[in-house]
Design a protein around this nucleic acid. Structure first.
Length: 251
DNA sequence: TCATAAGAGTCCCGCTCACC
DNA sequence: GGTGAGCGGGACTCTTATGA
């Protein structure tokens, strides 16, 4: 059972986090609470804490400062809980090798995924105790958090005009570099991924709703209906209307 | 990690066709 | 005639591959 330090000054919020998932079943135990991120430092030196969960709702500056100081002393995994569009914060957090960043309001599935990821790191570290904890996992895949943020942004803003240029600007990366990293990780370009996500959602809307095609085009982020027609036909081999008719026949 | 050229993607406009 | 669906092509923007 790995011990967790939860840093959150709001008691109600702490309780919500505690009740969000079955911690013990996941192999974790929230043993200690702290009101401020800076308080976490006191628990680091004892070496009893396996994971630190920090809520940034009160103060980003204090949370970031604590991350920096924790990293100077320890490789203990850190999960941050912050706002959905705070990319400057995410970017800075990554420089402190934070394990995960969960957007508020936190969903149980997001927390479980973060905990499972940390669990793998901790298990690997304990099986190879001579190696530093963080290096065992980050050395394998140091860019994964960035790629995950890009994918999450695409999922959440699919109905908007998303470009790699805009995302790279938000994350303070060179767009050519970010595009290259994305392709290295996903084996497809950023545009291919974006197209795939848009087309799959369009197919779903055609199958499950009576929405007009121009409405669906708008819903999946196409401002130009003609361009949606072209891409949909190229992707599925059938026009949007034909695809809907085929779905009705097979149903 | 960045700069740049080439190619791909996107926007925009005009057009046709089918249906009501 | 009005509306929705679909296509073609030119101009512009963005992404990717490449080299530094």
């Amino acid at each position: 059972m790995y011990k967790v330090l939860l840093v959150d000054s709001n008691r109600r919020s702490r309780e919500e986090t505690r009740q969000l998932v079955d911690w013990r079943r996941l192999g974790f135990d929230i043993q200690t609470y702290a009101d401020h991120a800076s308080d976490a430092l006191a628990y680091i030196d004892g070496g009893q804490i396996s994971l630190i969960l920090i809520s940034l709702k009160d103060s980003h500056a204090e949370g970031m400062s604590a991350c920096e100081q924790i990293r100077q002393r320890s490789r203990v995994p850190i999960i941050l809980i912050g706002g959905p569009d705070e990319f400057d914060v995410v970017r800075k957090a990554l420089t402190f090798q934070v394990s995960d960043y969960i957007a508020h309001p936190m969903q149980a599935a997001d927390l479980i995924a973060g905990l499972q990821s940390v669990m793998k790191q901790l298990d690997a570290a304990s099986s190879r105790a001579s190696q530093p904890l963080w290096r065992t996992s980050s050395a394998k895949d140091p860019d994964k958090p960035i790629i995950d943020i890009v994918k999450q942004f695409v999922q959440e803003h699919l109905n908007q005009n998303i470009t790699l240029k805009m995302l790279s600007s938000l994350l303070h990366f060179n767009c050519a570099y970010l595009g290259q990293k994305f392709k290295d990780h996903e084996n497809m370009s950023f545009n291919e991924y974006l197209l795939q996500q848009r087309m799959e959602r369009a197919k779903l809307l055609l199958e499950q709703t009576d929405m007009r095609i121009y409405e669906i085009a708008s819903e999946v982020g196409y401002t130009e209906i003609d361009w949606f027609y072209k891409k949909f036909k190229a992707y599925t081999g059938a026009s949007a209307n034909e695809y809907r008719k085929q779905c009705v026949i097979t149903a």
